[in-house]
């Protein structure tokens, strides 16, 4: 690919395919905010310090002020607008931030939420030190971080709880299948003897 400006790219943003003509001088955050109109991705520093412009590109959590928009051609992008599964309900992580006063102005939320999601994917039961490490690429000027730490803990607990409930439901489904029921009953008897 070679061009000075005005190059056609295609990206999938929050599940929706979008074609765009992009100036190669646009950073990814400018493309997302100006061209796509998704202003939930914020601009704080443009130097990679604050994390307010955080999005995911092909599943990787990154700071969009440090990338060129044109480099994201053919990529799958998720912004804060696509964080919850539906626009009607907040996700578990968002609810936890809401309940624990994990934000005030909300400017840092893209970084805080995506980093929390990334942390919980790899570590469902993080310690306070691990939480602090996971959010260390983000600056919050309102909360003093205490509410954020509590929110991530709460999100971890509620994610695990939701997972347990899902597992129990699946167990019940399995239980309902006649063949499985016999297996379970036999296994139960073996362990008793």
């Amino acid at each position: 690919m070679t061009t000075h400006e005005g190059v056609g790219i295609n990206v999938t943003v929050n599940g929706e395919s979008r074609d765009a003509i992009i100036d190669v001088r646009e950073t990814l955050v400018d493309f997302i905010r100006v061209d796509l109109g998704l202003t939930g991705t914020h601009v704080g520093c443009r130097t990679g310090d604050c994390g307010a412009c955080t999005v995911t590109v092909d599943g990787e959590v990154v700071k969009s002020c440090l990338a060129l928009g044109v480099s994201a051609d053919k990529a799958e992008i998720r912004t804060i607008e696509g964080f919850a599964e539906s626009s009607e309900h907040l996700s578990i992580i968002q609810t936890a931030f809401w309940e624990e006063f994990g934000f005030q102005c909300g400017y840092c939320l893209p970084g805080m939420l995506f980093c929390t999601e990334e942390l919980l994917k790899k570590n469902p039961d993080p310690s306070e030190a691990e939480i602090r490490e996971a959010i260390d690429g983000n600056l919050c000027r309102c909360t003093g971080y205490h509410g954020i730490i509590r929110a991530v803990r709460r999100a971890a607990e509620e994610t695990s709880q939701a997972q347990r409930e899902k597992d129990e439901l699946r167990d019940e489904e399995v239980w309902a299948r006649p063949g499985e029921r016999v297996d379970r009953a036999l296994r139960g008897r073996e362990s008793e003897s």
């Binding site: 955080t54 990787e60 959010i135 690429g137």
Partner: peptide, 9 residues
């Protein structure tokens, strides 16, 4: 330095 986001990029 720079958190998960910088380690990813």
């Amino acid at each position: 330095t720079g958190g998960i986001q910088i380690r990813n990029a």
